[in-house]
Design a protein around this nucleic acid. Structure first.
Length: 482
RNA sequence: GGCCCCAUCGUCUAACGGCUAGGACGUCGGGUUUUCAUCCCGGAAAUAGGGGUUCGAUUCCCCUUGGGGUCACCA
């Protein structure tokens, strides 16, 4: 008799209090990977039980980010699947019912104290350098709960040992178990209560979350028992640290909105690969993974226990790698919206050639305007490019002018204007003039771009075209004359 | 402070007691007909410290140190 294996159901449950940064995105990604790998379901649940902290538009922003990353969810606030609603603020009746069950069984009681009184208790404990435990102040005969005061879980302190798919076997003593608030006086449940009810009602099988919750797990276990509910598989993610490698990554010290990276032209697949390898690896030396590979190879056991520092330089490398692996047409599709305004006056063929020249040197797409400017307009002549050049500065103006003149003629004489033919002509010019490439090519490159850096010379010339090249060389000659 | 968790190059990590601790990013040096980039070659760079266990510890145990989390009517 083999029981049918329960379908894997994972969830990502953000509170709508802001944007998604890499830490949250990684939690979402791992939950998503697990669901996709097991042919399970990935659920998005909005934990909006704290109206004070809520930020307007945050839910839409989070959804937009998940979509942009390709982390599609099977059930969520904008779907009406059987386990909904998927916004906690729309599930208050459910929490109310479960809370009443606990009241009825004597496992929950009204907290009669004012918040000032509780704060006093807490301060007393702190003064004694003791952890604060509400259960030390449990009222003898609590009033009947009418919803106007917080409802607390009546815990049964005991030791726990449990297994965490990432952290391994964990254990705690009874001293960490306490009577935590399950329903707030505003009628909303706390996270601590709501998520347990929801995970159960939504048939969640695997809970993947950040380590800030690990200390609360024993209390959750105590509540699961009181409710007589099965405990889902739990996996705790190690923290992602800020650039200093100390503090947890937070919005304050540089954690950026994932959407910003996307807007800057970091490719979703690159972001996914980078985020996945921040803490996870499959035991091989592979550095870059396609999303398909991740779905195949991911496992919670491969997630490390230690915190990882977010390294933007590495992200740039990963992204550049993904950009270089694209075909010219693919890069063009992704990159064309980043082209400078002036590109609209050029045809698609031209713009595509520009992107092709840039492809191997792009780290992210929003670098395009800066790197492509000279393809679209004449930059002002900058004589310092010649005067400060380690070789060219040894030549006088007349020598440079005559070199530029023969160069222009040679280039203009090329019949079929392709990079290959241009290269051949330039090579011939090299032997004719008996100049070193560093002199001749640098000179031409500076004349036609006026930029400190540019793609390969023949490619650049081919894209710019005979007229522009000829005109710009003439302008350089005039500038050298004066 | 109590409790819990974590600890390999600057960074991401490999090595589930056994080769000179491997790879990658970054960095430094060199090469590819100029520049930037790509690509290739090479260098520097780590097991936090101390005790055990063992023929042998990055790996297992203990202590110390360091870091993180938590102790909310936030999640």
């Amino acid at each position: 008799m083999s029981k049918t294996k329960q379908a894997v159901r994972t969830r990502f449950a953000p509170s709508p209090t802001g944007f998604l940064h890499v830490g949250a995105a990684r939690t979402a990604l791992f939950a998503w990977l697990l669901a996709r790998q097991q042919n399970g379901s990935f659920i998005l649940r909005i934990e909006d039980t704290d109206k004070k902290r809520q930020i307007e538009g945050a839910e839409e922003h989070i959804i937009k980010t998940l979509r942009a990353l390709g982390l599609d969810y099977d059930e969520g606030p904008d779907s009406d699947a059987e386990h909904g609603p998927y916004r906690q603020s729309e599930r208050l009746d459910t929490y109310q019912q479960w809370a009443q069950t606990l009241v009825a069984s004597g496992r929950a009681y009204a907290d009669p104290y004012t918040s000032e009184e509780v704060a006093d208790f807490r301060e007393q404990a702190q003064a004694k350098r003791q952890p604060f435990l509400f259960r030390n102040h449990r009222p003898d005969s609590p009033p009947e709960w009418d919803g106007s005061m917080p409802l607390r879980f009546k815990s049964e302190p005991k030791s726990y040992e449990w297994h965490d798919e990432v952290m391994g076997d964990l254990s705690t003593g009874p001293e960490v178990i306490d009577d935590f608030v399950i329903m707030k006086s505003d009628g909303f449940p706390t996270y601590n209560f709501a998520h347990i009810i929801d995970d159960h009602e939504m048939s969640i099988t695997h809970i993947i979350r950040g380590q800030e919750f690990i200390a609360s797990v024993p209390n959750y276990l105590n509540l699961y028992e009181a409710l007589d509910l099965p405990v889902p598989v739990m996996a705790t993610m190690p923290p992602i640290l800020g650039p200093d490698g100390k503090k947890k990554l937070s919005k304050r010290d540089g954690a950026k909105d994932l959407l910003e990276y996307l807007d800057d032209g970091y490719l979703p697949e690159a972001l996914i690969s980078f985020i996945a390898t921040l803490g996870w690896n499959d035991g091989t030396t592979q550095e870059i993974f396609t999303t398909e590979e991740l779905i195949k190879r991911f496992s919670l056991a491969g997630v490390g226990k230690g915190g990882a520092t977010f390294d933007e330089a590495r992200l740039r490398w990963v992204n550049g790698h993904f950009i270089r692996n694209l075909s010219v047409d693919e890069v063009y599709e992704k990159a064309k919206s980043y082209l400078p305004e002036e590109a609209s006056s050029k045809d698609e063929q031209y713009n595509k050639s520009v992107i092709a020249c840039l492809q191997e040197r792009l780290k992210y797409l929003s670098e395009i305007p800066e790197l492509s400017m000279f393809f679209y307009k004449d930059l002002p002549i900058d004589l310092s490019l010649i005067n400060d050049h380690k070789k060219l500065k040894k030549y006088d103006a007349e020598q440079l002018i005559s070199l530029l003149k023969v160069s222009r003629e040679t280039i203009c004489d090329v019949e079929v204007f392709t990079a290959g033919n241009i290269t051949a002509a330039l090579n011939q010019l090299l032997t004719d003039t008996e100049e070193k490439p560093v002199v001749l090519f640098s000179l031409i490159r500076i004349a036609i771009t006026q930029a400190p850096a540019s793609p390969a010379l023949a490619d650049t010339i081919a894209v710019l075209g005979k007229d522009t090249v000829s005109k710009r060389i003439d302008e350089q000659i005039s500038a050298l004359k004066s």
